[in-house]
Design a protein around this nucleic acid. Structure first.
Length: 874
RNA sequence: GCCCGAGUGGCGGAACGGUAGACGCUCCAGACUUAAAAUCUGUUGUCCGUAAGGACGUGCGGGUUCGAAUCCCGCCUCGGGCACCA
């Protein structure tokens, strides 16, 4: 039933249809049906912040909603779900401030988001909502983590984190601004803490090479490739002058330049740094190392600061290629986390080494000579540092060789003498996977001593419980005692968060979980996962004394696999049924911001590959096609932010213009991938367009169908019919190609022509409404119903998408532009298929072309049928 | 510093190497109206010209081509990202 309004009253129409869709479960995902093609559209699910939806969300979700509605009309089985990435820092900080439980805050925020999403008319299947904080969900997050643990991909290490003594808490990178805490502006320092780390580097090669399997923007692929950072080179051994200390191992991508080494550099944290420091240098070195320790990697790598710093250790190393004695320096531009934490410095052929050598007056020896002029400064001398290609010089036994050849030969020769080997190195580092927070997934494991580990695992095995144990136990030292990580049985999951009295930091760097001794210190049954406080009596002899892990998982955990849970969101026995995984596979398109180009997408790919190796998922890559929408800027062209006061609120626009207008305008604003400013006056134009559609369909005053609309089959003029078919083709092509702005423009052109026409056939008016429906679904449904669309299909959304007749698109005459010497001079109308000779004759006779041809000789004619005729004259 | 984008009317933007400025906004003029709003019609890149018409024009300078906003080279400006990666 349509509404009763006579003019375009979107405040009545939009809620009306939203209710109809909800009441009829119009967007419920169809059952798995092997006979029907599937289409899975995925949004990057939102973090339900207290601020509610912003225009960027609206843009993102309208893009996908258009795809979902379009593909439903094309007869696909569409899966279009939504959920909440609800663990995270802002909610926890809000809880700390207000004393409210993060769960309650989350429930409230989710309710706001859900209401707003329904108000913009997005056709999600809300029955498939997932919430990363729901124990029924994070049970499987924990399960996946156990698989990683079992595969030996999780380990524990002391890692430096931001520690704020004044706040008594660990801070995230984004909470530290210019070396001060964001809250309270207190000084912060780097402090090592026990952390869980995931071995993503074990997948570096596949994460890189499998990028060729996916249809992603090239820029995103390039960013991931750069982040993984594969480089081929060699590890070379430089003997240290003091034979007791052995060798210094360096990684280099340029073994061909080994004869140009004039100094070595090791990172301040390098294990040999102490031993290499001579008594005379001790004071300078320890001062320098202290300074470097206070800096983050980011500061150390901040090029804006420019100046290289460093200090000589007092020691020397021996170049394995020529036996030369070279000084070993300590400098923080070398980082322990990459390569071997030590380099051979070749100032002639490396920018950073060159800057360092200049500052400390270290000799520079050129060993590569360019083959061509490019690298020289005009006088024939090479401009240093020179990092390009060329041939070797000053390199005994290798001079004259092209660099690539020398690379291989020098590496092989040094390898033969046991002084090196070819290696591949990655920039990618292992993934720091724990947080000292409350509002995250607890790690499903306990810490026990060695004897208890043996006893507990034996007991579990005897009880027929296969614990997910790694081949090598994961251990760490707590309070001077070695502890073993004992995973909980998979069947005991989820391990839920205990209630705490306060979300305040503990002051020790541990999460608030550590302040609940009855949860942390327990008697524990390894076979069942059951626990009682350690203060109570030991329930039975096979129960062991254990301490729970108090770290929680980072927000990434839940977002690494949510796209799989949508396939089968309520399944209690598996993260999703095999049948659902086989049918839906992964998203056909994934839409979200480019800010996730590296981290989220890389982490999710990593987990997916692990699940693929375990035969849990059938595909090697999670996201085959990816699209990044552009940011909507404020009216002033700046990023929208509260402090700038340039925020446009979707709720206000829905009240003033309606969501159909908002959606249509967001899609019309410009290319979807472009960053574009919000322009409130432009929205009027789109609103007027919808009103015009209304006026063409509905008679004023009565609300009955417009008299212009006729049931006569030939009511639509041939010109308008042709335009309709062109529009059907264009809108379909543009939706599939994600060029919605030009699709909207095509719809406007059609309505402008419709308005000028005397009559239009009912089925043509309905076809137009179908084209409009993905973009502006409410007005389309309303008008479809009023024009009797129900006689064709009970629901507009499921009515088959209009088809175009290619025969109708073929013209009998074509306009051809006449150019003379490349300049447009005239237009001629020619029958389709006109020959070049015919075209030339017509052009020569044209009064506009004639004056430009008189007295000239024709040298050449270029004829592109249906497009142009270019006459070149002299 | 490095990497990735982007520069087209007053504005957002169109344009398989083939008519630059679609579509929309904004101006301006007209119709309707007592008036306004809404709606409809027309106009709106710059310069010369009464006009017909012509010249110029896609950040700047070159190049390739019959033909360049589009391809190539070198600059400039703006935006985004960055882990000095040996």
């Amino acid at each position: 039933m349509p509404t009763t309004c006579t003019d375009y009253d979107f405040l009545q129409i939009e809620p009306h249809w939203q209710k109809v869709w909800a009441d009829t479960a119009a967007f419920r995902t169809p059952a798995v049906d092997a006979a029907k093609p599937k289409y899975y559209v995925l949004d990057m699910f939102p973090y339900p912040s207290g601020a509610g939806l912003h225009l960027g969300h609206c843009e993102n979700y309208t893009i996908t909603d258009v795809l979902a509605r379009y593909h439903r009309a094309k007869g696909k089985n569409v899966l279009y779900p939504i959920g909440w990435d609800a663990f995270g820092l802002p909610t926890e900080n809000y809880a700390v401030k207000t004393g409210r439980h993060p769960r309650d805050v989350t429930v409230e925020n989710v309710a706001t988001f859900r209401r707003q999403l329904k108000a913009i008319g997005v056709s999600y299947d809300f029955e498939r909502e997932v919430d990363t904080t729901d124990p029924r969900y994070f049970r499987w997050t924990q399960w996946i983590w156990l698989q990683l643990f079992k595969k030996g991909l999780a380990y524990v290490e002391e890692k430096p984190v931001w520690w704020c003594p004044a706040l008594g808490t660990v801070l995230a990178n984004e909470e530290v601004i210019d070396g001060l805490s964001e809250v309270g502006k207190h000084p912060v320092e780097r402090r090592p803490l026990r952390q869980w780390v995931l071995r993503i580097t074990a997948y570096a090669d596949r994460l890189l090479s499998d990028l060729k399997l996916v249809d992603w923007p090239d820029s995103t692929k390039r960013m991931q490739a750069a982040w993984i950072g594969r480089s081929e080179g060699a590890e070379l051994l430089f003997a240290l002058e003091n034979p007791v200390l052995g060798d210094l191992k360096v990684f280099t991508t340029r073994p061909d330049t080994v004869f140009g080494v004039t100094f070595m550099v090791i990172a301040p944290e390098h294990p040999l740094a102490d031993a290499l420091t001579t008594p005379a240098q001790r004071e300078a070195v320890s001062a320098y190392r202290k300074l470097a320790a206070a800096k983050s990697d980011l500061e150390r790598t901040d090029l804006a600061k420019g100046e290289k710093t460093g200090v000589w250790s007092g020691s020397f190393a021996i170049n394995p290629a020529n036996g030369q004695k070279i000084p070993v320096w300590i400098a923080d531009y070398v980082i322990m986390g990459y390569g071997t934490g030590a380099i051979m410095a070749v100032p002639a052929h490396d920018e950073r080494d060159y800057a360092f050598a200049q500052k400390f007056a270290i000799p520079v020896i050129q060993v590569i000579e360019p083959d061509h002029e490019a690298g020289t400064n005009g006088t024939g001398a090479t401009k240093l540092p020179y990092t390009g290609d060329g041939r070797l010089i000053h390199s005994d036994g290798y001079s004259g060789l092209p660099w690539e050849e020398a690379k291989a030969k020098i590496t092989a020769d040094l390898a033969a003498r046991g002084r090196g080997q070819a290696t591949v190195n990655f920039k990618l580092r292992d993934w720091l996977f724990s947080r000292q927070r409350y509002w995250g997934e607890p790690f499903p494991l306990v810490w026990v001593n060695g004897d208890d580990y043996a006893a507990a695992t034996a007991h579990a095995a005897a009880a027929g419980v296969a614990l997910p144990l790694p081949t090598e136990p994961v251990t760490c030292v707590i309070d001077g005692e070695t502890r073993y990580a004992l995973p909980v049985p998979e069947r005991s999951l989820p391990l839920t968060l205990p209630e705490v009295k306060s979300y305040q930091p503990t002051g020790t760097g541990e999460s608030p979980l550590a302040s609940i001794p009855e949860w942390v210190d327990i008697w524990y049954d390894a076979a069942t996962g059951a626990a009682v406080p350690a203060t109570s009596a030991r329930p039975a002899a096979h129960w062991v004394r254990a301490r729970r892990e108090t770290n929680t998982m980072p927000q990434w955990a839940g977002s690494c696999w949510y796209y799989l849970r949508y396939l089968d969101p309520q399944n209690p026995d598996a993260l999703a049924a095999r049948e659902a995984l086989e049918y839906w596979k992964g998203p056909d398109i994934y839409v979200g911001g480019a800010e996730h180009a590296v981290l989220h997408l890389l982490y999710a790919r990593f987990w997916h590959k692990v699940l693929f190796d375990l035969d849990v998922v059938p595909t090697p890559e999670p996201f085959t096609r990816l699209f990044h929408q552009g940011i909507i800027l404020g009216e002033d062209g700046e990023k929208m932010s509260k402090s700038r006061g340039n925020v446009a609120n979707p709720d206000d626009i829905i009240q003033s213009h309606g969501t159909d207008t908002l959606r249509l305008y967001l899609m019309f604003l410009g290319p979807l991938e472009a960053m574009k400013p919000w322009n409130p006056s432009g929205i009027e134009g789109v609103h007027c367009f919808l009103q015009k559609v209304w006026r063409e369909c509905v008679e004023r005053d009565t609300g009955a169908p417009h008299p212009k609309i006729s049931d006569a089959a030939d009511a639509t003029s041939p010109e308008l019919a042709k335009l309709l078919h062109e529009t059907i083709k264009k809108v379909g092509d543009d939706i599939e190609g994600l060029r919605y702005n030009t699709a909207v423009s095509a719809l406007m052109i059609f309505v402008n022509a419709w308005q000028k026409a005397e009559r239009i056939a009912r089925r043509d008016a309905l076809a137009f409404l179908q084209l409009l429906a993905p973009l502006a679904p409410h007005i389309a449904e309303e008008l479809w119903t009023r024009l009797g669309g129900a006689n064709f299909s009970p629901s507009l959304g499921l009515a088959p998408w209009p088809t175009f007749d290619p025969a109708k698109l073929v013209a009998t005459e074509q306009k051809v532009v006449v150019q003379i010497n490349g300049k447009k001079r005239a237009e001629i109308l020619l029958p389709v298929g006109a020959s070049e000779a015919d075209a030339t004759v017509a052009a020569k006779d044209h009064p506009d072309a004639l004056p430009h041809l008189e007295g000239k000789t024709i040298k050449r004619i270029i004829y592109v049928p249906g497009k142009i005729l270019n006459i070149v004259v002299a």
